[in-house]
Structures are given as structure tokens and as C-alpha cells.
Amino acid sequence: GDLHWVVKPEEKMKFDAIFESLGPSGGILTGDKVKPVLLNSKLPVDILGRVWELSDIDRDGMLDRDEFSVAMYLVYRALEGEPVPMSLPPPLVPPSKR
């Protein structure tokens, strides 16, 4: 569809830079590489667990570039005081996963 992804291009560039800095292997980051980054946000672990549930769209225990952007988006919004949704709203689903 022509639904715009809620992650803005300038945010995506920032998240992609963080993604690259974590040393993705084959274009994906494993859970143990992403976990410390999310823990760094100081958000409660149950919130981070939900962020992971929502962002690991194919549930393979790893995040690709777009899934990682969803995770970072949710973490930044949560830090601004917005609640993390219980399920992923359509505007948050990366165009590559629709």
C-alpha cells in the first residue's frame, strides 16, 4: 500500500547508523547484540521484552535493519513517555514486511 512508514527518513538514517555500529552479520543482529543496547535505555525489562516482541516481526530471534528501526523507534517513544502498544500498528510495520 501507500501507507507511510512512521519511522521518518532522518530517524531511519540514525537507526541504520546504530545498526551498523553493532556489527551485523549477514545483515542481521542477534538478540545478544541488541539486548545491551535496549537495556541502555534504562526502560523496564518487561517493556523491552514487549518492544522485542513487536519488532522481531518474523520471530527468528534476530533483527534485520528494518526490525531494528522498529525497536529503536519504540524505545525512543517510550523514553518520551508514550506507551508501547500491545500489538504493532500498521504504520509501524516496515514496508519490507507488509
Binding site: 538478540g31 521484552g49 522481531d56 530471534g61
Partner: peptide, 13 residues
């Protein structure tokens, strides 16, 4: 929440 016998893919659980 996860299938019996399956392992969690969530590093926070």
C-alpha cells in the same frame, strides 16, 4: 504464549 517445547526467541524473557 509460546508453543510447548519451543524456546523463546525473546532475549528479554
Amino acid at each position: 504464549q509460546y508453543p510447548a517445547g519451543g524456546s523463546s526467541t525473546n532475549p528479554f524473557l
